[in-house]
Structures are given as structure tokens and as C-alpha cells.
């Protein structure tokens, strides 16, 4: 009973909580770096969600090895490899965009002397 509930929902709950926490940071915090931290947490949650909908109990990993057979009598028993491959590249893109965002943050700091969004807004007026 408990096990079935966990198998159905634990990863979904975890990913949605991460997305919610990241959204909370991006909406309320005023430091630019903190906002980028929030965006990174949202990204982790989304990746976890996409991999979680590829999994089911008793799935095996989608790699052929000597002892790991992916299909028995025409019935596939492996986890879904397609979302995994999408997430694999999305993580690397996430690092690139994070580096670009941080660079722009540093440039903003060099121009305005602060990382606070409100002060930057005031200085821009």
C-alpha cells in the first residue's frame, strides 16, 4: 500500500516541489545570482520530472549487456530511453546558458555596482 503510493507519486512530488521552490526564489528574491540559482533548481526539477515519466517499477536500464536483456518474448522491460536522451543534452545546454547568465550578471555589477534588482531599476531611471 505504502510502497505502491510511493512508486506512483514520490518522484512526481519531488520534481513538482523543486519547480515550486525554484519559482518561489525567482519571484521573491532580489539578488540576480539568487535568481539564477532558482532557475537552476527549476531546471533540476524539470529534468527529474522528464526522467520520472520514463520509469516504472521493475524496469531495467536501457543498455544491452551480457546479463541485461531488454526484451523477453517481444515484451520490452526496459525504461523509456527517449526522455533520458532529451534530458542528457538539456543538462549540458543548461550549463552553457547558466554561464552566459552569470556573465551578464557580472557585467551588470560592473556597470551599476550592485546586484540588487530594485537598486538597478532605480539607477536606470
Amino acid at each position: 500500500m505504502m510502497q505502491e503510493f510511493l512508486q506512483n507519486y514520490v518522484y512526481l512530488i519531488g520534481s513538482m516541489s523543486l519547480i515550486g521552490i525554484g519559482l518561489y526564489i525567482t519571484l521573491t528574491d532580489e539578488n540576480i545570482f539568487k535568481i539564477i540559482v532558482g532557475l537552476n533548481i527549476i531546471e533540476s526539477g524539470t529534468n527529474l520530472f522528464m526522467v520520472a515519466i520514463a520509469w516504472y517499477p521493475k524496469a531495467v536500464m536501457p543498455i544491452y549487456t551480457l546479463t541485461n536483456k531488454l526484451s523477453i518474448n517481444g515484451k520490452v522491460i526496459a525504461a523509456d530511453p527517449l526522455p533520458q536522451s532529451l534530458v542528457l543534452t538539456a543538462i549540458v545546454i543548461g550549463l552553457g546558458t547558466t554561464a552566459l547568465a552569470l556573465t551578464i550578471g557580472i557585467k551588470i555589477f560592473e556597470k551599476y555596482g550592485t546586484l540588487d534588482v530594485r537598486k538597478i531599476k532605480e539607477a536606470g531611471r
Binding site: A52, Y56, P57, L70, S71, V76, A78, D80, L82
Partner: peptide
């Protein structure tokens, strides 16, 4: 849900086989 995913209905079956 975790217990009702069926890869045999998805297009990934073609990739795996």
C-alpha cells in the same frame, strides 16, 4: 503513474528493438 507506464505502447519500443 509509475506503475502504469507501458513502453510497449510508446515509440521507444522501436528504438529498443
Amino acid at each position: 503513474k509509475g506503475s502504469s507506464v507501458n513502453v510497449n505502447n510508446r515509440v521507444s519500443r522501436l528504438y529498443i528493438l
